[in-house]
């Protein structure tokens, strides 16, 4: 059996009296697309921030590629990237300039070729010279995805990557992620509020509620466990429970 690329053990994050992530443990295999699902405030984004080293856990451990994130941050993050609807990139730089800066930050070689490739892959070649400030939200999302793919990561964290995209582009992005997984064996941790997308994309889903894992498995297994028709019904049931609590 292949060793997991990501192992999270007993991860906790408390902000004062509030527990955002509560004793969460999971792992991700090479080439796996793992869905992280849950209502707003369930702890998805805090978990991703901890995996990226942006927030220090209160307790627990994070290991990637067999290394502890707390002690091997630099080595690990060279092989990891992320994209989120909630981030931006320097607005006064062109699309191409932003990608060049990222490539230099990660110490990449042959930058011009890589930038060309990724612009083509994300179908934003014509935006190359466009100043980032003038991009639509969908174009900006594609730029942050281009940034994430540019560094050829082994693990990719995507926080609602298709939230601001039209259905056509969103479909293309999903196809691109599947193709990347097939061709390079990249592992992807994925969050979305689109249940159909989660079902389509994820090999396995972790369902978070109030910081705890309440279900884990395929979309079908989770729906069966809660006695619901599909993932969307499970989501609605848990979200309402969470809101009423």
């Amino acid at each position: 059996m292949t060793a997991p690329v990501l192992q999270v053990a007993n991860l906790c994050k408390r902000f004062g009296d509030f527990t955002a992530v509560d004793d969460v443990s999971f792992s991700m295999r090479p080439g796996e697309i793992l869905g992280l699902l849950g209502p707003n405030g369930a702890g998805k984004t805090t978990t991703i921030h901890m995996l990226l080293g942006l927030i220090t856990p209160t307790a627990g451990s994070i290991r990637m590629f067999g290394l502890d994130l707390a002690t091997h941050r630099e080595t690990i993050l060279e092989r990891v990237n992320f994209s989120s609807t909630y981030i931006s990139m320097p607005q006064s730089l062109t699309v191409e300039e932003n990608l060049w800066v990222v490539a230099r930050l990660y110490g990449m070689a042959d930058i011009a070729r890589r930038v060309d490739q990724v612009l083509k892959k994300l179908e934003i070649e014509e935006l190359r010279q466009k100043v980032t400030r003038h991009l639509s939200s969908g174009q900006l999302t594609r730029l942050t995805l281009a940034k994430a793919f540019l560094t050829e990561p082994k693990v990719l964290f995507l926080d609602e990557p298709t939230a601001s995209l039209d259905p056509d582009i969103a479909q293309k992005i999903r196809a691109l992620l599947k193709e990347a997984r097939r061709s390079s064996g990249i592992s992807i941790l994925y969050t979305s509020h689109n249940m159909r997308e989660m079902e389509e994309m994820s090999d396995r889903i972790i369902f978070l509620q109030r910081g705890k894992i309440v279900a884990e498995g395929t979309a079908r297994q989770i729906a069966d466990r809660f006695g619901q028709a599909d993932l969307e019904e499970v989501f609605l049931k848990l979200a309402r429970e969470s809101r009423d609590a």
Partner: peptide, 18 residues
């Protein structure tokens, strides 16, 4: 502040940058 205004701090500190 340029990084703050550009909402770019996350991109920087989620990279290997020390």
């Amino acid at each position: 502040l340029e990084e703050v205004w550009a909402r770019n701090l996350m991109n920087l500190f989620a990279s290997p940058l020390k």
